[in-house]
Computed example of a mutant assay.
Amino acid sequence: MARLAHTPLRLGAKTLLTVLVIGLSACTQFPELDAAQTPGIGQAPYPKLISLDGLLVGPEPRATVDVISNVQGRVAGLQARAARLRRVTAGPAGIEARLARLRQKAAALRAAQ
């Protein structure tokens, strides 16, 4: 007796189904982008364009003392957080001792080879 109820779809049927789903999703209505405009933006003047050469000629930007101290403070905070995370033990109690024993056994096995 053939078991037709539980036979998986063949590759052709799966491909056809995938193409059908993708094709139907292409018919989806998308919201109008103009409806998302800020009120009054349609009447605003067009922005003034400037030459890129004028922007590239100036001196290279330098970090100010405030920026440097802000970044250094963030670095110190992240290093402190990393140190706290290194001290956290994850797993059941006594896992460190078990890991130490396993590492010793692995070292002994490597030495025996």
Rank of each mutant, 00 (worst) to 15 (best):
R62D: 04
L99G: 06
T64H: 15
E32L: 13
P92Y: 14
L11A: 09
Y46G: 10
T18V: 07
Q79I: 06
R10Y: 02
Q37W: 08
P59C: 09
C27L: 15
V57T: 05
A108H: 08
F30L: 11
L17G: 00
V57Q: 14
H6A: 00
A5N: 05
T7C: 03
L78K: 07
H6D: 03
E32H: 10
I41G: 06
M1C: 09
L17K: 02
A82Q: 10
A111K: 15
A35P: 06
G91Y: 07
G40P: 00
K14A: 12
S25K: 08
L85Q: 06
V19L: 07
F30W: 10
K105H: 04
A63F: 13
L102W: 07
A112W: 15
R110P: 01
T7L: 10
K14L: 14
A80R: 12
A108W: 03
S51G: 06
A36K: 09
P59Y: 08
I22F: 05
T38G: 02
K105P: 00
L9M: 06
A35I: 09
A82C: 02
L56K: 11
L56A: 13
H6S: 00
T7D: 08
P45G: 04
D34C: 04
T64L: 15
I95S: 13
G77S: 09
V19K: 04
L49T: 13
Q104T: 04
A93F: 12
R10S: 09
G12D: 04
Q37A: 09
A100W: 13
T28W: 05
I95W: 08
L4D: 05
A90H: 11
L16G: 02
Q113L: 13
T7M: 08
R74L: 10
E32F: 07
R84I: 06
F30D: 06
A97Y: 01
L4T: 04
P59L: 02
A36Q: 06
A111H: 15
D66N: 05
F30E: 00
E32S: 15
P47T: 02
L9K: 12
Q113S: 11
V71K: 09
A83Q: 10
A108M: 02
A5M: 05
D53H: 06
L102A: 08
A93P: 09
L55K: 02
D66W: 11
R3E: 03
D53M: 14
L4N: 11
P92L: 15
A97V: 15
L33V: 12
D66L: 01
A35M: 15
T18Q: 06
S69C: 05
P47L: 11
P92Q: 15
Q37H: 05
E60P: 04
L20K: 05
Q72R: 11
L52M: 08
A44E: 13
A26C: 09
L11E: 01
